[in-house]
């Protein structure tokens, strides 16, 4: 019988990647955090079903898995944008006007701290320092660092991301 298979292939490859992950980390001491990090890389965030699967496969109570992923700022339980913007509000950026950059980003995207745009293109976050203080104020988009920013440059930088 024919059945709808759209989306299934990607799910299958994600599932296979998860199995590989479990094989690699099942007997690894302290493996929960790397598994959560990798799983988030695979799915983009940590859906409930994935957390349940991790708990089962890693033989760790679900409450503990949930406790760990809510403790660390890096883990997300809701879908996120394709590009993650992290505006630095660390000390050096603070004294050089980091909050003005953040305001410009908020205005441009129409979302607040932690918000994701409707088209899932961007998620806007703040970070307490990305270690590029010499170039403050700065922000990170995915793994790229942008420094010596002025509020009016923000919109142009966003346009270079898909």
């Amino acid at each position: 019988m024919a059945s709808c298979t759209c989306g299934e292939t990607t799910d299958q490859s994600k599932e296979a990647a998860m199995q590989e992950l479990f094989d690699q980390y099942r007997d690894y001491k302290g493996g929960l955090i790397p598994v959560l990090q990798e799983a988030q890389n695979i799915y983009g965030y940590l859906p409930k079903e994935v957390l349940q699967q991790i708990a089962k496969e890693m033989r760790i109570p679900f409450s503990k898995v949930f406790g760990v992923c809510t403790f660390y700022a890096q883990f997300h339980l809701k879908p996120r944008g394709r590009n993650i913007i992290r505006v630095c509000l660390g000390t050096a950026c603070h004294v050089r006007g980091g909050s003005k950059i953040f305001e410009a980003a908020q205005e441009e995207l129409g979302v607040g701290q932690g918000g994701t745009t409707e088209d899932l293109k961007f998620t806007l976050e703040t970070v307490a320092c990305i270690g590029a203080c010499g170039l403050s104020p700065c922000m990170m988009i995915n793994d790229d660092t942008h420094g010596r920013l002025q509020p009016k440059q923000v919109a142009g930088i966003f346009k270079t991301y898909e």
Binding site: I33, K64, Q74
Partner: peptide, 26 residues
């Protein structure tokens, strides 16, 4: 190498050890 997961308190030595062990970094 263990990549941190974004918690300032993990710079404290015992919290860091907990984090390497895969626990909440307290």
């Amino acid at each position: 190498i263990k990549a941190g997961a974004g918690a300032f308190v993990c710079g404290e030595e015992t919290a860091l050890l907990n984090s390497i062990e895969g626990l909440r970094g307290m």
